[in-house]
Amino acid sequence: MASLSQKDLLSIEQLSVDDIRLVLDTAEALKEISSRAVKKVPALRGKTVINLFFEPSTRTRSSFELAEKRLSADILNFSASASSVTKGETLLDTARNLEAMSPDIIVIRHSSAGAPHLLGRECRSSVVNAGDGMHEHPTQALLDALTVRSLKGRLEGLKIAIIGDISHSRVARSDTLLFHKMGAEVWVCGPPTLVPADFHLLGARVTSLMEEAIEGADVVMMLRLQNERQKEAFIPSAREYFTLYGLSRERMRGARKNAIVMHPGPMNRGVEIESEVADADYSVILDQVANGVATRMAVLYLLSGKSGLKPARKPR
């Protein structure tokens, strides 16, 4: 059985180009299952997957759960607000407790960057990062790549513009790393207050002019702007933000003719994206959601043979 080169999926950074291709090809093949009358295959029968969510999430969590169910895994959902965990059990203890239940795969979403790494070091089971702080969201980047590849037929040579709050976005990091690795030309764009000074070192061209980012783009990816960025003095107002970085029909005219619009969700209509653009036929936001299930099925499937390998470092 084909499998990934590592026990865990912690980041795009540590995936090879071959790993990425393998996930995308596998996901492509698994897509068909979701259109069957009986949407279930026995690939993970007898395997246990724990969904460990320390941060509220509807979209990612349902997507993982559906992927697990379609592969016939046994599922345990564990959610906790990170703050209540801080008062009681440490993440390390939680990890050891879960480990004692012998799961095969742990899917973790956590507000602290690096939390999945801690888990991966301590656990024999495979760990899948479902988003850690401002660090990475690797399955999101993989599903984005699957969406682009299915529609464009390739990743290499495409111009991908990622626009918005780059600093606080784990999606921006994972997408940049992935598309850059696969040979696309990645541009990131946002106000200077929301783009880290060293972001170009991740493989992106950086601009604060939206027109420059969109010019000739094949893919325009919009990021959500959180309300609290105003209070923290990153931007003056949502209104001014929209005039500078909102995606309007007019701005889309600068993109390539068959360009597509993406958004990892949830969207703020009228803040970073005009409603008409979100609902236009070149918007593939719902394709992303559908591809999310197939991508996560692929990741779980490819990791399911990996658990039981020794962790990178011995548990302390």
Partner: peptide, 10 residues
């Protein structure tokens, strides 16, 4: 603050 904080999302 630098390349590594950007990379690590810290």
């Amino acid at each position: 603050e630098g390349y590594w904080s950007t990379m690590l999302g810290l």
